[in-house]
Design a protein around this nucleic acid. Sequence first.
DNA 1: TATTGTTATACTCTATAACTATA
DNA 2: TATAGTTATAGAGTATAACAATA
Lengths: 148, 148
Amino acid sequence: MNKKTVGVLDLRVFFPYRLAVLEQRVGYATSRHYQHDFDLNRTDWRVVATLAMFDSISATDICEFTHMTKMQISRAIARLKEKNLVVQAVSEIDHRATQLSLSGEGRKIYLRIVPRVLAEEQAILNHLSAVERGQLFKILGKLEHGLA
Amino acid sequence: MNKKTVGVLDLRVFFPYRLAVLEQRVGYATSRHYQHDFDLNRTDWRVVATLAMFDSISATDICEFTHMTKMQISRAIARLKEKNLVVQAVSEIDHRATQLSLSGEGRKIYLRIVPRVLAEEQAILNHLSAVERGQLFKILGKLEHGLA
DNA sequence: TATTGTTATACTCTATAACTATA
DNA sequence: TATAGTTATAGAGTATAACAATA
């Protein structure tokens, strides 16, 4: 390839581009563990992981927690109910709202996925020193806060 | 929301999740400048930015440079030719291959987009100190290298 | 036989908004 | 009137592979 650069912007050092390429690779490496092995897509996995954190939670709360839309969440819940991984009940307090939680089977699958994705995360972060990992998390926090 | 956490994985500190959410926000902020204003999607923009860097380049080279598939690139080139932003000629050396380059109009649009996306990048990175930006680029490089 | 690039097809994902039932 | 959640629809993006032309 002719490497003579005549442009004023080099994608290879453009932060949004580098972030996108990195995210794609990290996402691919991680998603295998729930997508291929347990047939959950990314939204499904996030809903399961969120439900595992709370005793009982509404769909709106999941939207807020996972940064996804109510439509995405509604579809994910429908898929997860179909597979008996999630239980949905009408809220006693507000009959419009629902109380969602993992089923026994849902929690079982969750507990099988967690060590795999955590191991994948560690494998990725192992390319950094302990100091660099600390720097990364601090930087991520600042960027998240700045872009919120 | 009931904040009682009973799970063993907290999405909020899970690196692949944080990376995905950050990338989505950065990508959204950046893409406005070519998507809304110039009707280019992300693939189109990457092809334009790549063509601006090289005098003449083949589709295969663009695939390699942008980490995208030949199908994505082929479609992007078709769209860009339709808009007269890109010129495509058959290679003298290998009649299967093509020599691609930006048209005058293509370069004009490119030069209008560049300052906008660079300003957006700076606005994002301004949430960090100069030292942190240096740390970030070093860390990005290590992760890219590790996941390549 | 292998490679360059295009096209076909089906599938997933996303965005927008209409809709219901409750409040 | 406003909110919780569902459903409809169309559009965008992706993956797989078949294909024609050339090497």
